[in-house]
Design a protein around this nucleic acid. Structure first.
Lengths: 205, 205, 205, 205
DNA sequence: CATGAATGAGCGTTCATTCAT
DNA sequence: AATGAATGAACGCTCATTCAT
C-alpha cells in the first residue's frame, strides 16, 4: 500500500534521484544531476515534484512502505511462535536489504536530511521497526525460549547486522540471497540465545 | 599517535567541522557553517586548512588513528587466547563508539565523501579493521573454541552491532559504558558461539 | 561564416565581455563586471555561457573568423599578382584593425589567457595569419618584384604596423579609414621594396 | 638614472614580479605568486613594497628608465645627421627589445593596469618615445633625405615593428642581435624612404 | 627587520527554485 | 502538459592587504 500512486513517468525521476542520493548523499546531490540522470529537463522534474525535499520524502516513503509491507506479509504467514516470528522478521529484513540495497541505504542514512516537518513521520517509522523486533524478542524472552540476558542489546544487534547487509552484499558474490537469509536467521537465533522448549515431549523420543 | 600533529589553534576548527559533518553530512555542510561554529573567520579557516576536503581527511585520519590506537593497545594487553583477543577488540570498539560517537559516525559514514586521491588510504583502513576481527575469529574457529558455522557473517555481525552503538548510545542513559562493554563482549562471544575448551573432561567422552 | 551562430540574446553579453576584456584584460575582468555591463543577472550570463573562459573563446573565435573572412574575400577579389595580393591583404587588415579595434585588440593580446585546451586552435590561427603574408611576400620575392633582402622581417614589420593600428586609430581623427588603407598599402609596398616589372619599357626616357 | 635605487634584496622580488606580470599579466598575477617565485614570505614582500601596484610602478619605471637611458646614450654618440640619428634610435630600440623582452613586454602592455594616479607619468613617457622618433623623422623629411609622404605613419610603423621584436625574438634562434639590428635599421630607412643626398658629390659618381 | 596570523571583500561558479508562455 | 529563460542566494575558495609581535 504505497502512499503515492506514482503516476507513470515519475519512475525515471525517482529512480535517478534514488541512485544519486544513494551514491552521493542528499546534501551532495544537485537537482540538475537528477534531471540529467533521469533524462528529463529540469522543468519537467519540477512539474512532477515540488522540489528536492519532496523527492526525498517520496523515496523514503516508498522505501519504508516496501519494507514494512514485506515484514507484514512475512509475519502474517508466521504463526504465534516467537522463534518463528523472529525468523520471519529477519528473513524479510535480510531479503529486503540484500535485494534492495539502494532503497535500503537511503532509508538508513538520509533520515537526517529531512526537514523538520517530515521528520516526525520518519521517526515514527524508525520506532515502528524497533517495535516490531522488540515485541517478538520480548515475547520469546517471556516465553522462556530466548535466553539472552540483554534483550535490548540483542535486538539492536540483530537489526544492525541485518541493516549492514545493504552496505556490503553483492548479488553476484558467492552467497545467494536465500543462503544469506538462512545464515542470518541462524545468527539471529544465536544472538537471542534461542533454546527450543523440548521438555517432556513424550513422543518422537 | 596521530599522523597529523594538529598544531594548536586548529582544534576549534576541526571540532566544529567534525560536529557539522556529523550532524549534516559532508555534502550538506558549508565551509561558512564550520567557520562560524568555530568562531573564526572564513579566511582564518583557510589559513589553517587547504580546503573542505582537507578538513575531512584530517578528521578521518584522526578518527582512524585514535580507533586503531585503542585497538592495538587493547590487543597488546591481551594474551594469545582468541576469546581473550576478541574480547579485547570488542571492548575497545565499544568503548570507542560509545565514547566518541561523533568521531565514529564520521569515519563510518563519510568515507564516500573522499575524493579519489584520498580514497585508497581510507579503503585500506577499512580493510584493516575487517582484518583485525577476521584474524582473531578465524583463529578461534581453527582452535575449535568458536563454533560458529559462518565466521564471515559472524564477523560482520559483531562489527555492525558495535558500530551501531555510535548511533544510539547516550552516556546519560541508563547503561554505563563499562556495563555496555560487558554486554557487547558477551553478545560477541555468543555470536561466534564461543565454547571454552574444557580439557580433561573425563566423563561423557 | 562564424563558427558559433550566436543565438540571439547572447549579443549583449558578448559585447560587454569584449569591451571589458579589451579595456582591462581578461585577468582583471570579473564576470560580475560583464554581467552588469550587459545588463543581465549573473545567473543569466551562466545560462548562456559556461564560464568566463568560454566567453573568451567565443570572442576570439568570432574575431578570428571575422578577420580571416575579410582576408579571404579580399584575396578572392585579387588576381595572381603578388603586389595586388599584398595590397589586398594589407587593405583587409587595416580595415579590420581600424574598423574593429576592440575585436582586434583582444585577438592580439588575450591569446595568452586561453587555457591549454583552447590554445592549440588559437596558435593555429596565428600561424595561419603569418602564412598568409609569408606566401604572398615570398611569391613576390621569387617573382623578382619584391626586392627586400629580408622577407621574414619585412613580413613581421608589415603585420606589426597594421596590427598597431588597433591601438591608436580613432575614426573621429583626421584620417579616414580609406585614406589610412591607402597609406598602409603604400607603406607595405615600400617595406617589401616593390618594383613593378617594367617589361618592354624600351627607353628609359 | 633609475628613479629607484633598488636597495639590495628587492631584486629577487622585482624579478619575480616582472616574470609573472610578463607571463600572465598584471591582473592575473597574484601577490602570492610573486612572493613564492621570489622565494620570500608574503610579509617580506610587503615589507619592501607597499603593494602590487607599487611593484608595477617600480617595474615600469625601471623599464622606461633603462630604455630611455639606452636611447640617450645612442643619440649622444650619433651626429646631427637625421639618418644617423634614426639609425641610432632604431638600433637602441631593437637591442633593448631583443635583449630585454620581459622588461619590454611589460612596458608595452601593462600601462593600462596603472591606477589613475600613476597613469599621467606613464603617458608622458609614451609621448616621449613618440617624440624621439617624430623629431628625427621630421628632421629628415625637412632635410629632404626621408622622402616618405606619410611621416606619421612611417614613425608608427617603425616603432611598431621594433616593439614587436619583444614578442617573437629568441636569442637562441638563427639571427643574432647585431644582425637583427642591422636588418631593422635597414628596414627603418626603407620605411622612411631614405635617399642620401648625393648631389654634387664629385668623386665616386 | 621580518613574520605568522588574520581579515573582509571579492572571485568564478552552482544552487534550488520560479515563471511566462 | 511542459519548457526555456531567468533569478537571488549561496557555494568553495583566493584576493590584496594589515597588524601584533
Amino acid at each position: 500500500m504505497p502512499s503515492r500512486p506514482a503516476p507513470a513517468g515519475h519512475t525515471a525521476i525517482i529512480e535517478a534521484a534514488r541512485a544519486q542520493f544513494s551514491e552521493q548523499g542528499y546534501g551532495a546531490t544537485s537537482i540538475r544531476d537528477i534531471a540529467q540522470r533521469a533524462g528529463v529537463s529540469l522543468s519537467a522534474l519540477y512539474y512532477y515534484y515540488k522540489g528536492k525535499q519532496e523527492l526525498l520524502v517520496a523515496i523514503l516513503d516508498d522505501g519504508l512502505d516496501a519494507y514494512f509491507g514485506a515484514c507484514e506479509e512475512a509475519l502474517a504467514d508466521a504463526g504465534e511462535d516467537p522463534a518463528e516470528r523472529l525468523e520471519a522478521l529477519v528473513a524479510a529484513t535480510v531479503r529486503f536489504r540484500a535485494g534492495h540495497p539502494v532503497k535500503s541505504s537511503i532509508v538508513l542514512t538520509e533520515g537526517r536530511s529531512l526537514e523538520p516537518e517530515h521528520l516526525a513521520r520518519y521517526r515514527e517509522n524508525e520506532e515502528r521497526a524497533t517495535r516490531q523486533f522488540r515485541e517478538v524478542i520480548e515475547r520469546g524472552v517471556a516465553d522462556g525460549v530466548f535466553l539472552t540476558p540483554y534483550p535490548d542489546d540483542a535486538r539492536r544487534a540483530v537489526i544492525a547486522m541485518c541493516n549492514a547487509i545493504a552496505q556490503w552484499y553483492r548479488p553476484e558474490g558467492p552467497v545467494g540471497i536465500e543462503e544469506l537469509v538462512e545464515r542470518y536467521v541462524s545468527l539471529a537465533l544465536t544472538v537471542v540465545e534461542y533454546r527450543p522448549r523440548t521438555v517432556r515431549r513424550p513422543a518422537r523420543g
